[in-house]
């Protein structure tokens, strides 16, 4: 291992009981939270997608993301020195301790909105995981390298649908364009450099998040153009705070649904 782990065994805790993850742990935790929370949202499509085939497709993508989260959480436990496991992070943290971006926590909208969200998220993951795979943290590089194949498929899925809906009927075109406008304010957070500063300094991430923005935008623009849609103008309001644990209203009910079994029956197994 070449990871420069900080000799922190007892991470400071602030008044809200939020552990302050040391070094690159904070960013790895953020990536795990992105994957977990989006997996939860995508799972809501089961029985709700336009066709059962699409239930399966979105369920598969959700499971891929859940797998990424499960691989990352124990590694965060090593990096932050607490030795916590996947359940500790996924089920026993409160809202303020989650570091995911607002994009993934937003409530399930129509199918076009989901494809707009998936397009941005998977295009971003494709670029980011490429950088992580070349990084200095062997565990993280391994997880990123494996997930890259999955993520490329997610991007392809979003692409197929955005093109079909955008270049489909007048109604599907209108709603797909509206979906792109809906997603636009949530994109900035993905490229925020500040939360990743320690990870970049440690060489875990070979380049700051903002450096992947041009290639992510190119990928999205290509899809949008093929779909006969137009890129939204830069939104005046943009989400922020997710990486600091400041979340939007839908996050509370998402966590309640996701965590209540584990919290109602502590330590239960089956």
């Amino acid at each position: 291992m070449t990871t420069p782990t900080d000799p922190v065994t007892d991470p400071a805790t602030d008044d809200a009981g939020v552990a302050r993850e040391a070094g690159s742990a904070a960013y790895v935790l953020a990536l795990a939270d992105d994957a977990l929370v989006y997996a939860q949202r995508l799972g809501e499509w089961m029985t709700n997608a336009p066709q059962i085939e699409e239930d399966m497709a979105l369920g598969n993508i959700a499971l891929d993301l859940l797998g990424q989260a499960r691989a990352l959480y124990p590694h965060v436990g090593v990096l932050d020195g607490t030795g916590r496991g996947e359940d500790d992070y996924a089920m026993l943290r409160d809202e303020r301790a989650f570091r995911n971006v607002h994009l993934v926590e937003q409530e399930r909208g129509d199918f076009g909105q989901e494809m707009a969200r998936l397009l941005w998220f998977s295009a971003w993951q494709c670029e980011l995981h490429g950088r992580l795979a070349a990084g200095s943290d062997e565990v993280l590089a391994g997880v990123a390298g494996k997930s890259l194949k999955e993520v490329r498929y997610h991007l392809d899925h979003a692409r197929q649908w955005v093109v079909r809906l955008g270049d489909g009927t007048a109604e599907s075109h209108r709603r797909m364009q509206a979906a792109l406008e809906w997603a636009a304010p949530y994109v900035d957070e993905l490229f925020d450099d500040e939360p990743a500063a320690a990870a970049v300094a440690a060489g875990v991430l070979t380049a700051p998040p903002s450096s992947v923005r041009p290639s992510v935008e190119r990928a999205v623009e290509e899809v949008v153009a093929t779909a006969t849609l137009t890129m939204p103008e830069t939104p005046r309001w943009r989400s922020r705070g997710g990486r600091d644990g400041i979340h939007s209203r839908p996050m509370g009910s998402l966590l309640a649904e996701m965590q209540h079994i584990a919290r109602s029956h502590p330590g239960a197994t089956w």
């Binding site: 059962i52 085939e53 699409e54 399966m56 497709a57 598969n60 392809d156 899925h157 197929q160 079909r164």
Partner: peptide, 16 residues
Amino acid sequence: LHAPDAEMALRNGRDL
């Protein structure tokens, strides 16, 4: 399976 066109049928086939 059901799919709107051949490309999506291929992808649904992969998933199913």
